[in-house]
Design a protein around this nucleic acid. Structure first.
Ligand code: MN
Ligand code: MN
Ligand code: ZN
Ligand code: ZN
Lengths: 149, 149
DNA sequence: TTTGAAATTGAAATCCAATTTCATTTTAAG
DNA sequence: CTTAAAATGAAATTGGATTTCAATTTCAAA
């Protein structure tokens, strides 16, 4: 369990320690990430069916405000959350075939972005970068069905 | 007026030529771009107050389907539309201070994206790339107020 | 330990942009 | 012209996000 994380979050946020918050945090930090609220809520329900959707909603919002969660909105329009761990910033490859989300980081990319911004005398605070297409699995599946068909 | 564009759109889409569609298209292609539906509707109203919001909505959706408009969703969550002209693909710098949207294109960036995708055996169909921060104007304003305060 | 103000919870209500419905009007093919 | 299909627009609906509010819980102070 993420006991330390929970305690430090509660302390730093001057929040009250509740069973609900601890359970939601545990579920969230043990999930795969990139889940929407309904999915997180469903997982929370398994642990404790009495916790309300509203509380999950508010807790994720709090976690986001305090930097422990990131809200992501990819092109499908769904609002997803991912836990923020010690691993650094990353961007995403998103498969339009199977929905798989692959994370990557690329220093050259970030440097290039800074260069572009400078040319426009623009100071970047953050960015969004997503690559949409077909993953390796979906590409080979498509190739096979084309061969058969 | 974009008479030719209108005619070819109607023809290619096997649509019916209506006053509403022509007026909406004209307003849209003479706008600055990156406008939401309410803003486009407001402009259409000035030309012809009888046109319904629903028709503007449906027309923009049609234009999007036919490749004459692009729907953009930046981080503020608003749905915006921009006319697709002959100019090629571009990405955006978005000022968090004043909302200004600057367009840019960068061949190196696109090449780098291809490289990243290849490394993951991923085939890109399109991407989204937005840089958020402060534009030149907002930066100098901030500097001035800091000097005074 | 008891107390009580403030914070939290959760069901229900509200919000609001996106989308659909449907009666009426318009288009364009024949 | 005639007429079926398409388009329009006001109104209704949808669905996720957010707020409300009465009841419950936390926790610091007594
Ligand atoms: Mn991620
Ligand atoms: Mn643009
Ligand atoms: Zn895939
Ligand atoms: Zn600015």
């Amino acid at each position: 369990m993420e006991t330390d994380l929970f305690k430090s979050w509660i302390a730093r946020g001057r929040l009250k320690a509740t069973r609900q918050r601890e359970e939601i945090l545990n579920v969230f930090f043990n999930s795969h990430g990139h889940q929407n609220l309904a999915q997180i809520y469903a997982q929370v329900m398994k642990v404790d069916p009495k916790i309300g959707y509203t509380t999950v909603y508010r807790t994720l919002k709090l976690l986001t405000r305090h930097g422990l969660a990131l809200q992501r909105k990819f092109a499908d329009g769904e609002t997803r959350y991912e836990p923020v761990s010690d691993k650094s910033h990353h961007d995403h490859l998103i498969c339009l075939g199977c929905g798989k989300i692959i994370e990557f980081e690329d220093k050259d990319m970030e440097a290039l972005q800074e260069g572009i911004a400078e040319r426009h005398r623009f100071k970047i605070s953050h960015h969004r970068m997503e690559l949409y297409g077909q993953c390796a699995d979906c590409r080979s599946k498509k190739k096979n069905s084309a061969r058969k068909g």
